[in-house]
Design a protein around this nucleic acid. Structure first.
Lengths: 109, 109
DNA sequence: TGAAAATATGCCTCGGTCGGCATATGTTGG
DNA sequence: CCAACATATGCCGACCGAGGCATATTTTCA
């Protein structure tokens, strides 16, 4: 019980669901159609996402409309933040080398 | 075989390893000591991280010194990017409310 | 009220993963 | 070459997660 943020994001289908919900709220059936995944499985993934706090369901008639709840992703952003400078450094080095190659000019390809 | 980025990050111990390697390269034994995890398991996690491209091993005498390879994390950053505006919006709303409360003033805590 | 629509839940199986443990592999120094 | 150190790998048992499938639950509407 209680799926964590990282576990929730480990599954491709769940990430696809989040990507879809970024465009706006969607009822389960629309997600089923868009994903090409069996409805029960979609519901299960939605449960995991709900437990992780990444989506929220709003009953609308006989359907349940799911919406994105991006707040938990801030935790991921916070975790990721210290790493950003690392690949920035590397990119700088790469660009420097590319610039150097550019200076020397030569054959392309 | 072939652990993917998201799978690699789903495990807490592996994220801790990355966090440790952010401070600099470390041989396996130091990781074992810092993590309080059995050596064979650390080696297995290092394998998964290697497959995901998140670390690299450099033999040094009879040890293997592991270093961070942040490049694959850019994929995560790219995935995360479109979500950033969402919680930014929400934060704006929250700040607005907090400002409003601030205006009204009141008891603290 | 009763049928159908929309969704959730329960059960089963399977493949994968984690930890514990023993052991293989490789490296160094004597 | 041998002993020790450092690390990797293999095997095991337990468990968790995912998909397939049937079914329960809730809601609507005629």
């Amino acid at each position: 019980m209680s799926t964590t943020l990282y576990d929730a994001l480990a599954d491709t289908t769940r990430r696809r669901i989040l990507d879809l919900l970024r465009q706006g709220e969607l009822p389960v059936n629309d997600l089923v159609a868009a994903l090409g995944v069996a409805q029960p499985n979609v519901s299960k993934h939605l449960r995991a996402l709900t437990e992780a706090g990444l989506v929220r369901a709003r009953p609308e008639g006989r359907r349940r409309v799911y919406a994105l709840r991006p707040e938990p992703l801030r935790e991921l952003d916070v975790w990721l933040a210290p790493y950003r400078r690392f690949w920035a450094e590397r990119l700088d080095a790469l660009e420097a080398r590319l610039d150097a190659m550019d200076d020397m000019k030569g054959s392309e390809d």
